[in-house]
C-alpha cells in the first residue's frame, strides 16, 4: 500500500501529512509534485493544507488548474480515495470534484483553534471505520472555510448523504455557537456522490498524536488504511 501526498508550491501541511502517514501510521508515502501530469502506483491521494500558489486569488483556484489535477481527477473517477484537508478541500471545490464553494469566514478573520465535528456519514473510505454521530476534536486553521452551496444543490448534497462532518459542540449538538466560520448548516466536510472523494476544513493530521492533545484525526487515516486493506483482500481473495 502506498499513499501519495500532493505538494503544491505553497502547501504547508504536506510535511505534516507525510509525517503522520509515514511515522505515526508506518505507511509507505510518496510526495506527488504538482508539476507532474501523472500519478502512478499510489492507492490514495491526500491534498494537504496550506496556501497553494499563495492563494492570492480565491483559495485553491490556481491549484485546481495545476498539471497534476487531471491525474487526480482520473484517479478519483476510477474510484481511488482522495482526501482534501483545508486548502486541499478548497482545491477540490475549485476543481469541481466536490460540490459547493468557500466564502471568507463570517468573522472575516483567520481562525486557528480546536473544534468538535460530528461524523455525519460513514460511506467514505476515511470515515467507514467511524460511527455516525461520533464526535471528533481537531484544530481548524483557515480564513476561507465558510462552506456555501445554493439551495437546490444543498438539498441534493444533504439528501444524498454527501455531508460527511458538521461542526458541533463537545456533546455532539450541531448548534450555531459551535460553528467557527459561518458554514451553511454547520457543514465541515463533504464527499463526492460516490463517497471516495472527501474534503474537510479541520486538520486530522494535527490531531494524530497523544502529545499534541488529540488522536481523533488519526482515525480518519486508520479508516483509510483499513478500507484499502479490506479492498485488497477482496481483490486477492
Amino acid at each position: 500500500m502506498r499513499l501519495g501526498v500532493v505538494v503544491f508550491p505553497g502547501s504547508n501541511c504536506d510535511r505534516d501529512c507525510v509525517h503522520v502517514l509515514r511515522h505515526v501510521l508506518g505507511r509507505d508515502v510518496v510526495e506527488l509534485w504538482h508539476g507532474d501530469p501523472a500519478i502512478e502506483g499510489v492507492d490514495a491521494v491526500v491534498l494537504p493544507g496550506g496556501f497553494a500558489y499563495g492563494d492570492y486569488l480565491r483559495a485553491g483556484a490556481v491549484a485546481a488548474t495545476s498539471p497534476i489535477m487531471p491525474a487526480v481527477r482520473a484517479f478519483a473517477a476510477s474510484g481511488g480515495p482522495v482526501l482534501g484537508i483545508c486548502n486541499g478541500f478548497q482545491v477540490l471545490l475549485e476543481a469541481g470534484m466536490l460540490p459547493g464553494a468557500m466564502l471568507r469566514n463570517h468573522v472575516l478573520k483567520f481562525q486557528c483553534k480546536p473544534v468538535h465535528i460530528r461524523v455525519e456519514s460513514t460511506r467514505t473510505p476515511f470515515t467507514h471505520g467511524l460511527r455516525e454521530g461520533q464526535v471528533l476534536r481537531m484544530p481548524i486553521a483557515h480564513g476561507e472555510g465558510n462552506y456555501f452551496a445554493p439551495d437546490p444543490l444543498l438539498a441534493t448534497i444533504q439528501e444524498s448523504e454527501q455531508v460527511a462532518f458538521r461542526y458541533c459542540d463537545a456533546h455532539g449538538r450541531v448548534v450555531s455557537e459551535a460553528n467557527p466560520n459561518g458554514s451553511l448548516n454547520n457543514i465541515a466536510g463533504v464527499c463526492s456522490p460516490q463517497g471516495n472523494v472527501l474534503g474537510l476544513m479541520p486538520h486530522p493530521e494535527r490531531a494524530s498524536e497523544e502529545v499534541l492533545g488529540s488522536t481523533d484525526g488519526r482515525m480518519l487515516f486508520e479508516s483509510l488504511v483499513a478500507w484499502l486493506e479490506s479492498r485488497r483482500a477482496v481483490v486477492v481473495g
Partner: peptide, 14 residues
C-alpha cells in the same frame, strides 16, 4: 489575537 495566528502547523505545538 492568537486565534488569528496558525499556531499548530508543523505538528510540533504541545
Amino acid at each position: 489575537v492568537y486565534e488569528q495566528y496558525d499556531h499548530s502547523v508543523q505538528v510540533r505545538t504541545v
